[in-house]
Structures are given as C-alpha cells and as structure tokens.
C-alpha cells in the first residue's frame, strides 16, 4: 500500500523529469543531441527498487530494458545462493536484448542495494523507431557496440580461463 500512496503523489504532481543530465552519460545515448535525448526521456519509466528486489527473472519474456540510474544491480542465475554473473553500475544498461527480440531473459537482475532504474518498453521503442528512425538508428549502433564489447570481454575471459587450465584441454 505504501508505494502505491507515494506513487500517487507522482500522478498528481506535474514535476518534470530531472534525469536529463544523467541520460547524457548513458552509454546507449551518448551519440544523441540534447533534443534527441529529450525525446528518448519521454519513453522512460522511472522505477525504484529496495535492496534484494528482483528487476526481472530468468525465463520471463523480455518486455523492457533498463538503464541503472542509481544503486548496484547484480546479474545472477537462479539458485540458492544465486550465482553471480556480473555487477552493473549506474549509467549501464541491463536487459537490452529485449529491444531486439522477445526471447526469455537469460539471467535474473537482483538489486544489491536501493536502486533506481529508467525502463524503456519494447512496444514504445518499436513505435519510436517508426516516428524517429534517426534517433533509433543511433541507439541501435551504440547497442551493437555494447554487445560487441561484451562479446570481446567474454572471449577474453574464456581465453584467460583456457590459458590457466592447459592440462584440462583434450589432447
């Protein structure tokens, strides 16, 4: 009940978003002009999470991607205790594959502390792509770079692990 009442305040208030400065530094939006960032900001849903709350679960359909505004978020796979895959800091993006397709989430996102996120819904982004193709193209380009970087990092990590265990390699 409590979050409902605190959120009801937001419904009544006409206070504009203060996220603009922050968005400028988000990796996915660095190529955008101020005007373009404002347009993207209009798509965002600001969400607040308590420490230890799940943002999404592995296996659920991906309907949105999240920019971490504040707090630390852990990417985990389910288990007791959950297995930590990565830690995500403010300015970084999680669940970004949701804007490419609707395959289920490959891992869960769990907040390590009180966190705020800015979510963009896939349906809204698809419509945005039709009305603002130039901005969408810039975001997709950045997304490709982010995914490419992650792939490079994963390859490097695998190579490092393989180098550490040469004796386990098959002859």
């Amino acid at each position: 009940m409590k979050p409902f009442w605190s959120d009801l305040g937001k419904l009544i208030s006409s206070k504009t978003s203060q996220e603009e400065d922050f968005i400028k530094n988000v990796q996915l939006f660095t190529d955008l002009t101020r005007r373009e960032r404002l347009k993207v900001e209009r798509l965002m849903h600001v969400r607040e999470y308590q420490a230890g709350e799940y943002i999404f679960h592995k296996g659920q359909p991906g309907a949105a991607f999240y920019v971490i505004r504040s707090g630390l978020v852990r990417i985990v796979t389910p288990g007791e205790p959950p297995i930590l895959l990565a830690e995500v800091n403010p300015g970084e993006v999680i669940g970004e594959l949701a804007i490419l397709d609707e395959t289920p989430r490959s891992a869960s996102a769990l907040t390590a502390e009180h966190a705020t996120t800015m979510a963009i819904f896939k349906g809204d982004f698809d419509a945005f792509m039709l009305s603002e193709p130039v901005i969408a193209a810039k975001i997709y380009r950045r997304l490709a770079i982010v995914i490419g970087n992650r792939l490079k990092a994963t390859n490097a990590m695998l190579q490092k692990q393989a180098a550490k265990q040469p004796e386990t390699r098959p002859a």
């Binding site: 709350e53 999404f56 359909p61 949105a64």
Partner: peptide, 11 residues
C-alpha cells in the same frame, strides 16, 4: 498510471 503499478507487475 504505470508508475502506480508495483515492481513485480511492471512488465
């Protein structure tokens, strides 16, 4: 309206 929805039901 969506902002009134609890996190578990957000997506």
């Amino acid at each position: 309206l969506i902002s009134l929805v609890p996190n578990i039901f957000f997506e």
